[in-house]
Simulated scan of single mutants.
Amino acid sequence: MPRVLTDERRDLVKAITDFCRRECGTKEQRDLLTAGGRDHHSQQLYEKMAGLGWLGIAVPEAYGGAGMGMGELCLFLEETAYGRAPISGFSTTIIAAAAYEKFGSEEQKRTVLEGVVRGRIEAISMSEPGAGSDVGALSCRAERKNGGYVINGQKTWCSNAHLADHILLIARTSQEESKHAGLTQFMVPADTPGLEIRGIDTMGGREVNDLYFTDCYLPESAVVGTEGQAWPQLMTGLNLERMILAALMLGVARRAFDDTLDYVRQREQFGRPIGSFQALKHRIADNATELECARLLLDDVAAQIDAAPDKVFAREASMAKLKCTELAKHMALEGMQMLGGYGYATEYGMEALLRSSVVSTVYGGTSEIQRDIIGRTYGL
């Protein structure tokens, strides 16, 4: 079912679609850009997008961006994911950039936001070996010393730290009665002495990292916002993080569905296309319906956020993240089943969609956490 878009949004979608088809539309092109699929980010492609002004889509005009809203940002994310553009650095960059925009000093804003527009990458680090879903359990310490702070501790699962100019670090500056109090955000240049970035190999290739801080000194100017207020600051960014992940996975779900549909239309067994058999025809119908429901949900929540950008839509954003990530995983699994052996062949790409979609139900708040958040909004 076609979307009803403004002329401006329709032109944006068409431009992104054409770009992805031209620059990374074949497996051979993507392999060249990503070291055979091992890397998730191509700086070469990323900087081409920067030249077209797309990376600043959600950056204020005062810092060189286009100053657009959640609706346009979601369209960009969805279409680049659908087009398989290897630009994984964008999602963490825009999440971190939003925090600097809201709470950073003017110097921090100019450094980061103007860098985003030019194609620089940012990362954000919260998780620790003993603190994943329970963000309040963070123990990485930042102690005042010599007019600044000394950081000691370990972070983990930090996406794109190995590519980033800076890492937005959440560390504990004091121990308070509430575990969510006493946390502070810091802007850490990736080349700061005392910081070691060590990659974690996963089934999806190189994307996440362990961070080790050993007597890592930061000046007082590295604080982003107010000391001890990282938790309420982080809460203001929940809409953005969840919507980014939802939009990306809606694009992945669409790609998995379309690739599966193309296959079952063409693949013949017993003298006719396999998609004509009721067992597959009905699954395609169900999947198409679920895809349309997810798209309508995402578009509606994005419109609500654009209408009230300062409001936290905890329920709605969690619903979008939950629905789109779970649907992407389902669509990729369905594709694997309907493609049969070809679903496992790297040539067809369905296995790559499965790898990228499975992890989406874990990062950015697991599906279980999203369900818990949604339940709490109903007083449960």
Rank of each mutant, 00 (worst) to 15 (best):
L77R: 04
H41I: 07
G37F: 02
E28R: 14
I121G: 03
A247W: 01
L169V: 08
L234T: 08
A345L: 15
G37R: 02
T6F: 10
L245R: 14
R118P: 05
R295F: 00
R295T: 09
G51H: 09
G204Q: 13
D201K: 06
G56N: 08
A246S: 12
E196S: 15
L52H: 13
A66S: 12
T202N: 07
A288E: 14
A58Y: 09
G379D: 09
R242H: 13
R172I: 06
E326I: 01
R242N: 15
E207R: 12
E143A: 14
G56C: 11
D7L: 10
Q44S: 13
R295V: 02
A303S: 13
N239R: 12
G64V: 05
L327G: 08
S221N: 11
T325C: 15
R315E: 14
A97R: 06
Y378H: 12
A246M: 05
R283F: 00
K321G: 12
L163T: 01
A161P: 11
M70R: 11
R3V: 01
F213T: 07
N209W: 04
L33C: 05
A137Q: 11
R272N: 03
R3F: 03
M319D: 09
D299V: 00
Y46V: 06
L168F: 06
S174W: 06
I167P: 08
Q233G: 09
Y212N: 06
R255T: 05
M70A: 13
D201R: 05
E316K: 01
A99K: 09
D134G: 00
G194W: 05
G364K: 06
R295C: 06
A294E: 04
T6K: 08
T366R: 04
F19S: 06
R376L: 03
H330Y: 14
A96S: 15
E290M: 14
V223Q: 10
H282N: 13
K48W: 07
L240M: 14
I284K: 10
S276V: 06
A131P: 05
L211M: 11
Q108R: 08
V359I: 15
R206K: 15
T361H: 02
A246V: 08
I369Q: 15
A246C: 04
D7T: 11
S174F: 03
S127D: 12
A96W: 08
G237T: 11
S105N: 03
E220D: 15
S105L: 02
A99F: 13
D11C: 00
R254V: 01
